[in-house]
Design a protein around this nucleic acid. Sequence first.
DNA 1: TATGAATGAGGGTTCATTCAT
DNA 2: TATGAATGAACCCTCATTCAT
Lengths: 221, 221, 221, 221
Amino acid sequence: MKTATRPGAEAEAHRVTRPRADALRNRERIVSAAREMFVEYGPEAPLDEIARRASIGNATLYRHFPDRSTLLVEVVRSVMSRTAEAAERADAEESDPFAALCRFVHEAADERIGALCTLLCGHFEPHREDLEVERIRLTQIVDAMMERARLAGRLREDVAQGDLMVALAQLSRPLPGTGCMNIDRFTHRHLQLFMDGLEAPARSALPGRSATLEDLRRATP
Amino acid sequence: MKTATRPGAEAEAHRVTRPRADALRNRERIVSAAREMFVEYGPEAPLDEIARRASIGNATLYRHFPDRSTLLVEVVRSVMSRTAEAAERADAEESDPFAALCRFVHEAADERIGALCTLLCGHFEPHREDLEVERIRLTQIVDAMMERARLAGRLREDVAQGDLMVALAQLSRPLPGTGCMNIDRFTHRHLQLFMDGLEAPARSALPGRSATLEDLRRATP
Amino acid sequence: MKTATRPGAEAEAHRVTRPRADALRNRERIVSAAREMFVEYGPEAPLDEIARRASIGNATLYRHFPDRSTLLVEVVRSVMSRTAEAAERADAEESDPFAALCRFVHEAADERIGALCTLLCGHFEPHREDLEVERIRLTQIVDAMMERARLAGRLREDVAQGDLMVALAQLSRPLPGTGCMNIDRFTHRHLQLFMDGLEAPARSALPGRSATLEDLRRATP
Amino acid sequence: MKTATRPGAEAEAHRVTRPRADALRNRERIVSAAREMFVEYGPEAPLDEIARRASIGNATLYRHFPDRSTLLVEVVRSVMSRTAEAAERADAEESDPFAALCRFVHEAADERIGALCTLLCGHFEPHREDLEVERIRLTQIVDAMMERARLAGRLREDVAQGDLMVALAQLSRPLPGTGCMNIDRFTHRHLQLFMDGLEAPARSALPGRSATLEDLRRATP
DNA sequence: TATGAATGAGGGTTCATTCAT
DNA sequence: TATGAATGAACCCTCATTCAT
């Protein structure tokens, strides 16, 4: 009772949780700064500069993310999560399943999924638990969307998810070199041309086998 | 006359060029090693490692190429030159102009033009003389091929050279990370899908403006 | 009041400055080692060796002084500051203004101002703020001392500050080559002979124009 | 007989000695270029650049001078030789022995004896035969000139050759930093002031002992 | 816990010197 | 003999990571 009536009690209770709130806020700032830096400078971006952009000390970054891989994973995970959400929204809201795929692709490009997912390749051990959750979620919704489009006769038969996802990643990557963000101007054009190529009926026979994301992973040593 | 009859004259003339022959051999080995390294690790590949792969001392690399830019230019120039040759062959030998474009695109991918031309972006001053020669040569033949395909009603009207070249570069880039050369397995599939999207009649309206290579150059700060 | 009564407040305040105390100690050791090395080997002395003498890692040196210029400036600034103090003391304590000049010259030589001020020539952009403060301070006190000596008829009329300062710098420089610190044995003799030449009445007509320190600066490209 | 009458015989004989003439010419060009470079950039001047200025291959420099020391010695020796000649001329032509000293000092400064003789300190083993010859020659003529001036009551009694030679070297050295050749503007003023201080009667008591060149040499480890 | 500071390892580049023609 | 080319060692500087407060 006394605490309930004493003025400032709530503030005190707050004070108990505040440090954790601060830590979470720091963590968010780090991930946000890291996303910007990785997109702009690639996966080798200086960690000190990421810390500086997040307005925290460099050692604090290491407390939250003991190595570069951990930070990369978290950045990619968060982007994957938002991308999966975009896919789910597109799937739910578009009546034409091929239009849903197109919408998803363009929205994913805006999320820089290209810049970031490709970071995964070769930069850390593949099977982090938390990342797998989002990867599977994304894989499943994209698979479902493609299957629906295929059944509707809107998507050519000879393509698999890896075809879509790798091309999406590549076409939305920034051009190499610092600050070449200008790829944005062209990405959506190229993605649209690619989607036109995916549309049924197929206009050509494709060489090789269709790829899954698992193929890509395995292909990486 | 006198030199022709004097014994050893030929040997002397030889002696003038022979040392250069050794140096040229070294130069070739450097360019070749650099091409591999740049494709695999990007334009920031350690020059010392390039020298090691070429089995020469590190300072020798600097004798031939005083800075990284010069080496990058030479690597890109040689690839551009071979790619232009491929384009000219395809243009000459294929009766269907769209088939010629397709053949060129796949051959260019095998030359790793994607990996290498994108190196240009932001990594050195744009207008080196020798590079420009090859760039113009390549630009002109590709423009000619696209124009022919367009006139034949085989290429959609709303695309320009930059659309083709940038997508070609992006789709044939190796995935980031060491040794991810396995993109080759998928590149030709993705390129074919993209070419299907380029084929007339257009299946969609494209967003934005068509890009030229000049646009890309200007977009880079 | 509140901080005074709160236990640990002083300790906390201390904690804010204590790390800086360690860093300052390192900084002092760097400047001291740099002074020795610059005097002994000139302004091109290896920075790694300076770090080694200061018993710190090489990168620590760069944390404190991002480039060679910054370190040079700090070394020279501190010596200029001590030299200006010596001049002010001599000016205040000696009744004969020419004796004050002589005392200043010998004390400045002991500060190695010769070795160090000459480092300025051509090794960094001339107008660093903090350095200018000390340079002006030194210039003004020496000008004042010379003017007083001139008015007292003790200093010949045809000399200016640059004549004194450049000769002081040159005569007190260490001889080139490692460890030739033994110039000290002779510097004071030579300086005294030079001062005898400065004394009024003039024993000869001087060639050229009298130099100011500004002349020297401008003379450097 | 037959060779005497055959046309071109003399030319042939010439041809035997011509290579040596070429070699000597090369040697002269190297020494000359080295003198310029050492004066301008100090004793660490790049040997490759010296070779380039002499318009010869770098390896040719090594054929003539197997190491930097040998080249330094030769440069200094030639300057010492010319300086000794200047001393001998001044001694022969000036009636006032102190005026002879003054003339010698200024001429020696123009020979850059300061820049070059100080190169000796610490940069090579002290007792090269050919160098000693010139050093002794120079020492003896300067000693003789000083003795004559002393006897004539024109030079103060408490100075020795080292006092003159070291101060001469120091005052005529270029200021540190590349290309600071502008010391010339002031050198002759400072030397004149120093000579005024050397003139009898002495205006002060000198600290320390008078130095000989031998003292300097021994002082160097 | 958060931080500024320290550090070692590695890459880029220059230069003295050696080698092969 | 004279030369261009090759080389390794040394230096400068950056950055990921650890330490001490």
